[in-house]
């Protein structure tokens, strides 16, 4: 074989392999499998929304505990799908004290007993299911994706465990699921909401501080909540278009 022929043959094989792997390789999830996985649920008919009424939250930690139970989240102080933060403005202090001991799992110790607290409030946190999610943008293999009903999920069969998405989340909502070796996050309990149930944290909240519903349903609780309150979302300057609507928090909450 002449050198020229050899180079030609090698080039052709490389090009063909490249085209197959990058363009023609069939997607492992075909339409039928997708339908089976959703079990009859039509994600085109819903667009989920979440609201937090901080004025109602008492920092009991029920949501955190329910979430960890429901989603098998490790019960150590490093892994959380949802957590609660406490903001306390103390007399004589310029900036608020912020804490979240064990994510609020065991509620909050009354550590400001001896201080004069001017103002304090709890901020329940969870994944904001951003409309423009940086985690989806940065995932090198497309393992994390946005569903048509507005939730960001992780495909454990695809995730390579690079943790780029964890670093890219401005809200610190992602963590590494060590058992699966994949990035993990709050899904607004997608396995429940696709069956018509509420997320575990919403169900567990004793004061109704967490509001969940379908934004496509005009009469849903979430639509009423958004209509009746002045709401803010977290870190709007980053352009992620976070979707969790907050009521009753100061602008310093990030």
């Amino acid at each position: 074989m002449k050198r020229r022929d050899f180079i030609k043959a090698t080039g052709t094989v490389t090009l063909a392999a490249g085209v197959y792997l990058t363009v023609l390789k069939p997607s492992p999830v075909n339409a039928k499998e997708e339908k089976d996985w959703l079990n009859g649920y039509d994600w085109n008919k819903h667009y989920w929304g979440f609201g937090i009424d901080s004025t109602k939250c008492i920092g009991c930690g029920s949501c955190v505990r329910a979430c960890k139970e429901e989603n098998d989240v490790p019960k150590d102080p490093y892994h959380f799908r949802c957590w609660v933060e406490r903001y306390a403005h103390l007399k004589g202090e310029e900036k608020p004290k912020v804490d979240s001991p064990n994510g609020g799992y065991n509620s909050f110790p009354d550590k400001y007993k001896k201080e004069e607290v001017l103002k304090a409030f709890f901020v329940p946190k969870l994944c904001n299911q951003c409309a423009v999610p940086p985690c989806v943008q940065v995932c090198p293999v497309g393992a994390t994706y946005q569903t048509k009903d507005g939730v960001v999920l992780v495909d454990n069969d695809y995730c390579i465990g690079c943790r780029y998405c964890i670093s890219a989340c401005p809200f610190g909502a992602r963590y590494m699921n060590d058992e699966a070796g994949c990035a993990d996050k709050c899904t607004w309990c997608y396995h429940r909401i696709t069956k018509g149930l509420e997320p575990a944290c919403v169900l567990a909240c004793p004061v109704g501080a967490r509001i969940f519903g379908d934004l496509k349903d005009e009469n849903s609780e979430i639509n009423k909540f958004i209509e009746e309150h002045k709401i803010i979302t977290l870190k709007p300057d980053l352009g992620c278009e976070a979707k969790v609507a907050y009521v009753g928090i100061d602008s310093e909450v990030r």
């Binding site: 102080p77 892994h79 959380f80 957590w83 804490d99 994510g103 670093s167 809200f171 963590y175």
Partner: peptide, 11 residues
Amino acid sequence: FIYPNEGWLQW
């Protein structure tokens, strides 16, 4: 204060 999930260094 750090977010609870940040207590685990990823990179």
